[in-house]
Amino acid sequence: MKKYKKVLLVCAIAAVLLLLGWYFLNREYKYFMRSAYPLKYTDIVAKEATANHLDPAMVYSVMKAESNFNPDAKSRAGAIGLMQLTPDTFDWVQTKLKSSEKYTEEDLYTPEINIRYGCKLLSILFDKYSKQATALSAYNAGIGTVNSWLKNPDISKDGVVLDNIPFEETRSYVDVVLKNYENYKKTYQFNSKGENMNDDETWQGRSQKNVG
């Protein structure tokens, strides 16, 4: 009888240790994922994602792929800021937003302006193209380029889906953004206002350094 009780006690201790191990591993995994896929400029993203009917997870995914949240980023092609807009694209999107204020290239370094117009561009592209990969290809390669691909039966059989993406850079870009998107969707839960809903105090405290 004593031997039986000892076995039960050992099994109970083992079960508790396994549960504790699972708890701490799960907690550290969440911390790792939130460190690898941070939320920055949250107030601006929530506002602009909601205004443009975008999934905030997609906005963060694009921003991470484009600049890794560096507002001063500038590419060799001249794309600027968090969402990497070129001055020409910026000027074009300004005609769509019809703001009373005319912004210059230097304004693209301002996070609020860059995210506002980057989200507007994403919204235009997601309205224009029914497939995420096609819209993201246009964000990277341009609308004219993607439209020409869709007219090519060797690239798109139905004129809607890109069966292959000819540019390696664009193909890699789309893969990265969609992978980011998958991980952001797994890691966070957003409400209808674009706000993250599953942060407890510990995670909020640990992520303060991620606020832009």
Rank of each mutant, 00 (worst) to 15 (best):
K2M: 00
K2S: 00
K2F: 00
K3R: 00
V7S: 00
L8H: 03
L9P: 00
V10K: 12
C11G: 10
A12S: 13
I13S: 14
A14K: 09
V16G: 12
V16P: 08
L17W: 01
L19Y: 05
G21Y: 05
E28A: 11
Y29C: 01
M33V: 02
M33F: 01
R34E: 08
S35D: 12
A36V: 12
A36W: 05
Y37S: 06
Y37G: 10
P38W: 06
T42A: 15
T42E: 15
D43S: 14
D43H: 10
D43K: 14
D43M: 07
E48V: 05
A49N: 01
A49G: 10
N52G: 03
D55Q: 01
D55M: 10
D55P: 09
V59Y: 03
V59S: 03
V59W: 03
V62S: 03
V62L: 13
M63Q: 00
S67W: 02
N68E: 13
N68M: 13
P71N: 10
P71K: 10
K74I: 09
K74L: 11
A79L: 07
I80C: 12
I80N: 01
M83R: 09
M83K: 05
M83A: 08
L85M: 13
P87E: 02
D88E: 12
D91Q: 12
W92G: 02
V93W: 07
T95E: 09
K96R: 11
L97T: 12
L97C: 11
K98P: 04
S99K: 08
S100L: 08
K102A: 11
Y103C: 10
T104R: 13
Y109V: 00
E112T: 09
I115G: 00
I115A: 13
R116W: 09
R116A: 10
Y117V: 02
K120W: 07
S123T: 03
I124Y: 04
L125T: 02
K128Q: 11
K128H: 08
K128F: 00
Q132K: 15
N140S: 04
N140T: 06
A141M: 06
I143W: 05
I143F: 06
T145V: 14
N147Y: 04
S148E: 13
S148G: 14
L150G: 01
S156R: 04
V160A: 12
V160Y: 08
V161F: 09
L162D: 07
I165E: 09
I165A: 05
E169Q: 10
V176N: 14
V176T: 14
L178E: 14
L178Q: 15
K179L: 15
K179T: 14
N180E: 03
Y181I: 03
Y184V: 04
F190W: 01
S192K: 10
E195H: 07
N198I: 03
D199A: 11
E201W: 08
W203M: 14
W203Y: 15
G205A: 15
R206D: 08
N210S: 14
V211E: 15
